[in-house]
Simulated scan of single mutants.
Amino acid sequence: MNLSSLSFFRNLHPENKQFAVIGLGRFGRAVCLTLHGLGYEVLAIDMDEKKVSQALTDRIAAHALELDTTEPTAIQQAGITDFDTVIVGIGNYLAQSIITTLNLKEEGVKHVVAKASSEIHMKLLKKVGADHVVFPEREMGYALARNITKPSILDSFELDPEHSIVETLVPDNFDGKTIAELELRNRYGLTVLAVSHDSKFEINPPANRLLKKGTIMVVIGSNKGIDRLTP
């Protein structure tokens, strides 16, 4: 998640309790299941009657409709424009995904989140007005590559293409040294935000805090510095 993503999510109203999910493949079903499990009212939509029936049978949504969302009149009649946030989970049918996203925005849906299956698909979704585009396959690929090559990084939060916040294991060569001694800001361009201590995190630790290998620290800074820091 980057700063543009944060801007989108900040604009969502916390009191919003209703979501519509269009496309009931694996992605759409997962979104429905999670939202419904969290207590939100979810309308599940697909052109495939079997997928709609299965959604109701599996109770992953409060309501489900068989609908062709490439038709603007169908969107109006189904009341989808009453939903503050609509998730377009159609990934493999580019024309259907793009037309649906365009129709939703033209009909006045405030927040449209759309799933992309390729770089071109992502660019087209943004062109037709998608407020936020997710690319699950690419994001999973990045995460897998980082986990394989940087196993010491436990979690990461991308601020922009060049900077991140990461949760990482303290390197062996940092063991027994203080934050001040390591000169992380001068040598790596990194700032320590927190370190684990007695099964808890100590936020904004003092410069004389000793680091121990195998414990966790959270740092913010350039991706180049993070790559140098982690073996």
Rank of each mutant, 00 (worst) to 15 (best):
Q18L: 11
V170G: 05
V166H: 02
S196L: 04
R228P: 03
M47D: 01
T178H: 01
H163P: 01
N208E: 15
P14N: 08
L125H: 00
Q18H: 15
I87Y: 03
D46W: 01
V195T: 08
T191H: 10
A145V: 08
F19G: 00
N147E: 13
D175E: 02
L33S: 15
D48Y: 03
L210C: 05
T73R: 15
D172C: 00
N208S: 14
A74Y: 03
P151I: 01
G91T: 04
S118E: 06
L6F: 13
S199M: 06
T178Y: 09
A64M: 10
E158F: 07
L229F: 15
A74W: 06
I99P: 03
K105A: 02
A143Q: 14
K127S: 13
E137Y: 07
G23L: 03
M1P: 04
M122P: 01
F9W: 13
S156D: 13
P171W: 00
T149E: 14
R146A: 14
D82R: 12
L65S: 04
H63Q: 14
R10C: 05
L193S: 07
V134D: 00
V52A: 03
I226T: 09
R146M: 15
D58N: 15
N2I: 13
V42H: 03
E162K: 02
T34I: 04
D82V: 06
F9E: 08
I120R: 11
A74F: 02
S7K: 10
D82A: 15
L35E: 00
A194R: 07
T215I: 00
A44V: 03
E139I: 08
L159W: 08
E66K: 11
T215F: 09
E107P: 04
M140D: 08
P231W: 04
M47L: 12
T191M: 12
V195L: 01
E167Y: 09
K123R: 14
P161T: 08
G221F: 06
M47R: 09
A114T: 02
S7I: 13
P161N: 03
